[in-house]
Simulated scan of single mutants.
Amino acid sequence: QHETVFRRMIQLIKDVCKLVSRALQPPRNVRITSHNMDLVLRWDPPEGAASGLFYTTEYNTSVSVYKVGCLHITALSCDFTSLNHHITVYGQYTARVRAELGEEKSAWVESTQITMDRDTMIGQPNVSLISSKSNIEVSIEDPEFRISELRHAYNYATYNITYWKEGQEEKAESISNIQQNRVILDKLEPWTRYCVRVQINTQRNLNPSEPSSVTCESTDKESPWVAAVVTFVVMAMLVTLAVVAVVHRKKMSHFLCPKDSLPQHFKKHLLEHPSSSIYLAMRDSHPPEEVYDQVSVIAEGNPMEEERPLEAAGTNCSSQPETTVGQI
């Protein structure tokens, strides 16, 4: 009799083990995360999970019971901030998830607790640089939070700015505890390219933000506002000229194309051909022919005298006979 009872107990244990082994396995690696003040539960599917699994999630706070989150989803995450639930910056949250297959439901698997302002991962800030002579202005834009804003969530948030000459990051310099979102890096070398990276630090959140992308700019570049001012002045002048032209278009039209005309008898006098006798004679006349006679000059006396010096020849000029030139 005792042996029979013992065998029945063994069979019952085997049956229970079979039922347990056949039960739907719960999700694995359940964790709750926050990035830029969102609240997301993530998990991995059960080991050896069958196809067609669904999941249901719930969440609670330190002062409330569990509330329904995502129902019958196939995704492996649930974003509670997108469900119009009242998630607060300073709240403490826990979440859980279970697997579902038809009428079968697995056991709930609960995450650890998260405190939003303390545990959220702050994203990278956006950084832009403006060069002006030997200075570089660093402009910082905070990451966008899903709920609230950085400066509202953290009363004391500062920037850590690291900068270096391009290619010399091992010699980088840093400026810490900066609260302004515009900072001037001065005393830089002229005509040199510098690179900048920024991180955000808070007192409540012990983890610094993700570092910004590395941004580089060269010194001694003309500031873009100069070109903007020049463009503005040129555009203003063009608009002014256009307005003046529209307002005074009649006066300008009269000035450029006057309506006053010469008297009719003036036009007739200017357009008709000259008819004076002198003009007609000059127009029709031919140049007069030139009449001339050929003249020859013959010298008398000893031909050898022609070879004497001019001074000697000059003393006898009065003794030479006169030469007569024929009249024309």
Score class of each variant (00 low, 15 high):
residue 73 I to M: 14
residue 125 P to L: 02
residue 56 T to R: 08
residue 87 I to D: 06
residue 115 T to R: 00
residue 98 R to S: 10
residue 95 A to T: 05
residue 118 R to V: 01
residue 71 L to K: 13
residue 107 A to S: 09
residue 120 T to S: 12
residue 81 T to F: 11
residue 65 V to M: 04
residue 113 Q to T: 13
residue 86 H to W: 14
residue 94 T to Y: 05
residue 90 Y to N: 10
residue 66 Y to V: 05
residue 106 S to M: 01
residue 101 L to I: 04
residue 115 T to A: 00
residue 62 S to A: 03
residue 118 R to I: 00
residue 118 R to T: 01
residue 83 L to I: 10
residue 59 Y to P: 04
residue 116 M to A: 06
residue 97 V to Q: 07
residue 117 D to G: 00
residue 115 T to C: 01
residue 92 Q to M: 07
residue 56 T to K: 04
residue 48 G to Y: 12
residue 50 A to P: 15
residue 101 L to F: 05
residue 58 E to A: 13
residue 51 S to T: 11
residue 59 Y to K: 03
residue 111 S to V: 02
residue 76 L to C: 12
residue 117 D to A: 07
residue 43 W to T: 00
residue 45 P to D: 10
residue 81 T to A: 15
residue 94 T to A: 04
residue 72 H to V: 11
residue 119 D to G: 00
residue 79 D to M: 00
residue 96 R to Y: 05
residue 54 F to E: 14
residue 93 Y to G: 09
residue 76 L to R: 11
residue 82 S to P: 06
residue 105 K to I: 13
residue 46 P to N: 10
residue 75 A to W: 06
residue 73 I to G: 12
residue 72 H to L: 13
residue 70 C to L: 07
residue 89 V to P: 03
residue 84 N to Q: 14
residue 102 G to H: 09
residue 101 L to G: 04
residue 85 H to R: 15
residue 128 S to D: 08
residue 128 S to W: 03
